[in-house]
């Protein structure tokens, strides 16, 4: 029983503790040139950044990235935001990621998380899963799943961050 109290106290602590925001952990992911980089080194020079977990076989993920792709030029111009797409395709699919990205016409920064190391460290359950980071690299918002129109809500939050406002809901 004590264990459970401890567990729930831990939960309460973490839930009540939204002020100290998480950052990207120091876990290695692969860029499309095969070089390993640390997820903690992803930055956007003090501007907001969207990190989206996806896979080539995940239809809602592709819909989300396509929907954002149609607007990304405007987003970049207006807020300086950058989108980083992290594929969790495993080794049977990962060789197809680069041609897939080209065939979709995406110009995102794309990385591979082949054995879901980063995904696990960030507690991503199902994909698509989208994180929004502020200029200091802190995770200020995250969202699971995708429906058409979600991208508009995401962009409202990006605009807030770009103006230096804080985001209330995680």
């Amino acid at each position: 029983m004590k264990k459970w109290i401890a567990l729930f106290a831990l939960l309460a602590v973490s839930l009540g503790n939204t002020n100290s925001n998480g950052k990207m952990p120091d876990i290695k992911i692969k860029d499309l040139n095969g070089s390993l980089i640390s997820a903690s080194s992803l930055t956007n020079n003090g501007k907001p950044m969207v990190v989206s977990f996806w896979a080539t076989w995940c239809k809602p993920c592709v819909r989300e990235l396509n929907a954002i792709n149609e607007q990304i030029v405007d987003w970049e111009d207006e807020t300086g935001v950058k989108l980083v797409a992290i594929s969790i395709d495993d080794s049977r699919q990962s060789a197809r990621v680069r041609p897939f990205v080209a065939s979709q016409g995406w110009e995102y920064e794309v990385y591979l998380d082949e054995n879901s190391e980063l995904r696990r460290a960030l507690n991503v359950n199902n994909i698509p899963h989208t994180f929004l980071l502020n200029g200091a690299g802190e995770i200020v918002w995250q969202h699971n799943g995708y429906f058409p129109g979600d991208e508009d809500h995401l962009y409202e939050l990006v605009q807030k961050l770009a103006k230096g406002e804080t985001i209330e809901h995680k």
């Binding site: 831990l10 973490s14 009540g16 002020n19 998480g22 507690n123 359950n125």
Partner: peptide, 16 residues
């Protein structure tokens, strides 16, 4: 106590 410590950037707990 640890809530206070956590707030002082003594780490962070997350989960799913």
């Amino acid at each position: 106590g640890s809530t206070f410590l956590f707030a002082q950037n003594f780490g962070r707990i997350s989960g799913n």
